[in-house]
Amino acid sequence: MDRRTFNTVFAAAVAAAASTKAALATPAAGLVRADNIVLAHGLFADGSCWTEVIARLQAAGLNATAVQNPLTTLPEAAAAVERVLDRQDGPTVLVGHSFSGVLVTENGVHPKVSSLVYVAARAPDAGEDYTALAKTYPTPPASAGIVFDGEEGRLTREAFLRDFAGDLPREKALVLHAVQQPFQKALLAGRTSNAAWRSKPSFYAVSADDRTINPDLQRFMAKRMGATTIEVKASHLSLISQPDAIAALILKAAGR
């Protein structure tokens, strides 16, 4: 690489870093200060996947609640989120990982929700066929590792360790695999009736090394919604491998 090319590449890298820093330093339009955080988990997990992030939010003085997503049907999953939102006592940031980005999109119109955070998450438009959208990008490796027992789906151990939790210590990933919550096929057939990101301040954490949701698809969805976006060098489980970065984004969405 000659000197001129090096300078160009270096300047681009500096500009990209500055842009990310500026995005987190500038309040999003219409942002309301919130004391409550509701977090929803996606497939192959349960509410405990938010433990590391919750500890950081609590240390900052926020009230955090993890939803136990039943992973059965979209209406039942949305109802579980709705019940938790109803219990909040004021403005609330709604956060979703992976599949639960669908719930952020659907439930985010709730009057108590002040902003939305997507963590390596699906972000469909109202009525959009997410599966069809995802097929416009290369299929991520984890998809081949899903196995079904009748209507119940889960990830094999090999796929979980390599494609879902690839940047976690093996011992920790094995524990997470052991407690993964199976999902019902019917869950994936549901479509949202709302697109909360069209009216609420939105934030997105892209996982650059994701093998479960294509990172370019994540970038597309984040750009489409006009989200304040960060990119972390992480697997699909950035909320566990990069909890400081994810908690910081949530705090930003809470007006902190």
Rank of each mutant, 00 (worst) to 15 (best):
M1Y: 08
M1H: 10
D2N: 13
F6M: 14
F10N: 13
A15Q: 08
A15F: 09
A18R: 09
T20Y: 03
P27A: 08
A34W: 01
N36W: 01
I37R: 04
I37V: 15
L39E: 05
H41Y: 00
H41R: 04
F44R: 03
D46S: 09
S48A: 12
C49V: 15
I54E: 12
A59G: 11
A59T: 10
A64E: 10
T65G: 07
A66T: 08
V67T: 06
V67I: 09
P70M: 11
P75I: 05
P75N: 09
P75L: 07
A77T: 05
A77P: 06
A78M: 05
A80T: 10
E82R: 11
E82C: 02
E82H: 10
R83H: 06
R87E: 15
G90V: 04
G90P: 08
T92C: 08
L103I: 09
V104F: 00
V104M: 08
E106K: 06
E106R: 05
G108C: 08
P111G: 07
P111W: 03
K112Y: 03
K112D: 09
K112R: 12
V113I: 09
S114N: 06
S115D: 10
V117F: 03
V117M: 08
Y118H: 05
Y118L: 13
A120I: 05
A123V: 11
D125T: 12
Y130P: 04
T131I: 13
L133N: 11
A134S: 14
K135Q: 15
P138S: 09
P140G: 14
G145C: 13
I146W: 02
F148R: 00
D149P: 07
D149K: 10
G150Q: 05
E152I: 10
R157Y: 07
R157W: 09
E158V: 15
E158Y: 08
A159S: 15
F160N: 13
F160S: 14
L161Q: 13
R162Q: 15
F164W: 13
A165C: 11
D167Q: 12
L168N: 12
R170G: 12
R170H: 11
E171S: 15
K172D: 15
K172R: 12
L174N: 13
V175Y: 12
V175Q: 13
L176V: 06
H177W: 15
V179R: 12
V179S: 10
Q180I: 01
Q181E: 10
R191K: 15
T192E: 04
T192L: 13
S193V: 14
A196E: 06
W197P: 13
S199T: 12
P201W: 00
F203Y: 14
Y204H: 01
S207K: 00
A208E: 11
D209C: 04
R211N: 13
I213Y: 01
I213E: 00
I213D: 03
P215Q: 03
P215C: 04
P215N: 04
D216W: 01
L217D: 02
Q218M: 04
M221I: 02
R224N: 04
A227L: 02
A227H: 02
V232K: 02
A234Q: 02
S238Q: 04
I240M: 09
P243L: 01
A245W: 00
I246W: 00
I246L: 12
L249S: 01
A253F: 00
A254H: 03
